[in-house]
């Protein structure tokens, strides 16, 4: 029996995070060296694993630094998604259009 390759991602959010970073890199927002530098700095600061949670944190910060979005806009959108989820029957797709508003 040949060794089974472990799954690339442990959860869908890891996969989405990875794909967003790659897509933004391919679009020219940063080079891989810049990315590694940003990720490495964040990892060193807290002695943290360079895992997908750190990827997400790093891309959020990088995008804010580049003026693509802001921490505030991200937080607002997260709240909107939480409301949309609460208003969506279990098992149905959660879309922002389900957000009943504050």
């Amino acid at each position: 029996m040949r060794p089974e390759d472990p799954p690339a991602f442990a959860a869908p959010w890891e996969a989405q995070t990875f794909a967003m970073v790659v897509a933004l890199h391919d679009r020219g927002l940063f080079t891989w060296s810049e990315w590694a530098e940003a990720l490495g700095e964040a990892s060193r600061d807290g002695d943290r694993p360079a895992d997908y949670a750190l990827w997400l944190e790093t891309i959020e910060r990088l995008l804010a630094e580049r003026g693509v979005t802001t921490a505030h806009a991200l937080a607002d959108r997260q709240t909107a998604f939480a409301r949309a989820a609460a208003a969506t029957p279990h098992g149905e797709p959660i879309a922002l259009t389900n957000d009943p508003g504050p």
Partner: peptide, 20 residues
């Protein structure tokens, strides 16, 4: 009506993706 819930990481990823 049982609503749905997203984990904190799912919320962050969805928020970021929808903005992008």
């Amino acid at each position: 009506h049982h609503g749905s819930e997203l984990s904190p990481m799912d919320l962050r990823v969805r928020a970021l993706e929808s903005i992008l």
